[in-house]
């Protein structure tokens, strides 16, 4: 369960195409996620600098989730958590 939850979190962080093609983050940012914001900053507003900054934040968030998932996966292998 814990592993599944973390994997779903990672996949949700990665999701881009569906949101971009259906709403582009709109209306007025209601469906905007981190990667959508990054992409529109970079290629709609041409603000490469702020896009890179968003990217760094994204990397940090992803790393936290990924490390968490590794810890949970290791616990599952040991049999501590199910």
């Amino acid at each position: 369960m814990g592993l599944l939850a973390l994997l779903m979190t990672i996949w949700s962080l990665r999701r881009f195409e569906l949101i971009w093609l259906m709403t582009k983050g709109g209306p007025v940012g209601a469906t905007e996620t981190l990667v959508i914001d990054l992409y529109s900053q970079a290629f709609d507003s041409k603000e490469l600098g702020s896009a890179a900054a968003i990217g760094m934040v994204g990397v940090v968030i992803s790393l936290i989730v990924i490390i968490g998932s590794r810890l949970v996966a290791r616990a599952v292998e040991k049999g501590d958590v199910r």
């Binding site: 990672i10 990665r14 992409y39 970079a42 990397v59 998932s69």
Partner: peptide
């Protein structure tokens, strides 16, 4: 393993 989990859109810029 890490690279596999990072969102691809982060790498676009």
């Amino acid at each position: 393993l890490f690279t596999q989990m990072l969102p691809e859109a982060l790498m676009v810029v």
